[in-house]
Design a protein around this nucleic acid. Structure first.
Lengths: 255, 255
DNA sequence: TTCTGTCCCTTTGTCCGACAAAGCTAGAGG
DNA sequence: CCTCTAGCTTTGTCGGACAAAGGGACAGAA
């Protein structure tokens, strides 16, 4: 018979973890604001009363979590975690969990439609300028799959941004990052892929400008279905996202 | 006139970063599989030819990224990043970016509807057993706001799980984590809140069991609108998520 | 046999001290 | 007032050290 649970496990976190937690707490509850400097390592050594090596391990944890950064002069300061970095963590996780392209497609259908709906409703003139600019650049590289795929990824980021909904913006990003490399492959393999992609973007911008929700949703669906048709010429939707796709996300994260 | 670009910038990442990158690469591209042991710190010192302090800093980075863990005996091994941990990173970021409850509500409306649609279409018997079990436990604690809020959070995780779409599962989690504390406040403040919540869950399970998509979407909408009405009795939807809400997520992550 | 206590080796967490390289600062010199 | 150089500071890395805890092997007790 197992023992009755008389004691709860004791909290014995290593010192570096406690250092990280302490600093994190100050940032998350707002006592340290984004941009505020954290002291030097030596300062932290004095404040926490532990060795510099221990402090440094704690700093690594916070740095990886995106809560603190070193500016150009390597001084530490608190900062707002950046979406693209967080999203690439998630993309990495999705790859490791071997999600299928079907899951990506289905989730993106939902998320991109929601994005366009928000954009149609709330896009500002500044958003439209960015989108127009993206369209011009896309048209210029319609013959170059890699560059076009990059423009496509940026386009959808801009649409999400135009929705003014940061939760949505963040939620769609991981899946979108995994789409990106396949777009390049599809545009390469399917002759009319590039022009169709740019045409869809044009219709989407138009829908946003006219605040025409129906058209926005319609063209988003078509755009994604185009991706799907193109993808299915190359592979099955039930294939899991493969490891090699991560290399794009990795390169993006390092920037 | 600027110099012709004769040289590319040299990669001058610090050693600990290179260590982390090297190990990450092996895990992400599949040469090290989840569960595989990483060597001891001493092994890594030998392999990379750097000091143990440097190795340890690299390990912290990977640990925080969720790519490696220490098992009960503190030995290192690769592992699959856990959704709840990643999601709480995102929740933390959303709090720091001071997103509004309106953004949360709008995004969740999309994500939870998509979840239920997937669940209605693909839920297995095992999923239904879990949901039924959750319902029973919810009914038992309908008078206790904290416990009920926890059940509610779990319920929606289970629905997302039943959708069999892990991308969706991951995408909805950050917003859901921020909902959780407010649910407790609402159930506390609004008398009929608890019973209505449980009733909605019952209808949702019923819709999943009958594979009735319309009903599923309808009751998800109602459920969320209930939350919204309850929330608006307490505060404005345009208020930003506040720092104190993070404490729940923090506690969850530490587990 | 099965459990327990002991000894030893390994591994981790932490500490100390040190040093080169790069940034920053302030005073010297124009 | 501006520039340049000589410190001082800070970071990244190194080497070595030690206590605590885990794991394994082994002997003795129930």
């Amino acid at each position: 018979m197992p023992l009755a649970p008389l004691f709860r496990p004791i909290d014995v976190a290593p010192a570096y973890q406690k250092v990280a937690d302490a600093i994190e707490r100050e940032i998350v509850n707002g006592r340290i604001k984004p941009g505020d400097p954290i002291g030097t390592e030596h300062d932290l050594v004095r404040q926490f009363g532990v060795n510099r090596s221990t402090i440094r391990e704690g700093i690594r944890v916070l740095e990886e979590g995106g809560l603190i950064r070193r500016d150009s002069s390597r001084r530490l300061h608190a900062c707002l975690p950046r979406y693209s970095k967080l999203a690439s963590r998630l993309s990495r996780a999705l790859v490791l969990h071997e999600v299928t392209f079907r899951e990506l497609y289905e989730a993106s259908m939902t998320l991109e439609v929601a994005s366009i709906e928000g954009a149609v409703e709330r896009a500002t003139d500044a958003n439209l300028v960015e989108l127009d600019d993206n369209l011009v650049r896309s048209e210029a590289v319609v013959g170059s799959p890699a560059a076009l795929a990059e423009c496509d990824a940026e386009f959808h980021v801009l649409v999400a941004k135009a929705s003014q909904n940061r939760v949505l913006q963040l939620a769609r990003e991981p899946a979108a990052q995994l789409f990106y490399p396949t777009t390049e492959m599809i545009v390469t393999g399917v002759a009319e892929g590039g022009p169709r992609l740019v045409a869809a973007h044009r219709h989407l911008i138009d829908a946003i400008r006219r605040r025409d929700r129906e058209a926005g949703v319609l063209w988003t669906r078509r755009h994604l279905q185009d991706w799907r048709r193109g993808f299915e010429k190359i592979a099955s939707l039930d294939r899991s996202v493969e490891h090699m796709y991560m290399e794009h996300a990795q390169a993006a994260r390092r920037r």
